[in-house]
């Protein structure tokens, strides 16, 4: 499959994520949208990794080109997992305090 398809898919996912973050006010949905963006990036990384590997292996059978991108993917997943755990905890605390998960209430920094 040509790389363009992956790029298009990843871009769509990313834009949906961005739009979600910008438009929605529910903290959990915002959170999910952030995950969506991360995963769009992950998808792109994996796709390029495969592409570079496919190009390199024709000339050198033992090549490891493109594996570092996969490493990044794992790294991102780990960070995302950590982020989710902290983020969800914050949302729970927020719900306990103000009985809402609307991010527009999170403007204490303003003043």
């Amino acid at each position: 499959m040509p790389i363009q398809y992956y790029i298009a898919l990843a871009s769509c996912l990313f834009c949906i994520g961005v739009a979600g973050v910008l438009i929605r006010r529910n903290a959990i949905i915002v959170f999910m949208c952030i995950e969506l963006m991360l995963n769009a990036v992950n998808l792109l990384l994996v796709a390029f990794s495969k592409m570079h590997y496919a190009n390199a292996v024709t000339s050198d059978a033992k090549t490891i080109v493109g594996t570092d991108a996969q490493l990044f993917v794992f790294f991102i997943m780990v960070v995302a997992a950590a982020e989710v755990s902290v983020g969800l905890a914050i949302i729970v605390m927020m719900y306990r305090n103000i009985h809402s998960v609307d991010i527009n209430f999170l403007n204490r920094l303003k003043n």
Binding site: L22, R25, I103, N104, N107
Partner: peptide, 14 residues
């Protein structure tokens, strides 16, 4: 401009 609304900040970022 520093409204404190996270949404605004993200909008500017984007």
């Amino acid at each position: 401009l520093q409204s404190g609304q996270v949404g605004n900040y993200i909008l500017f970022m984007v």
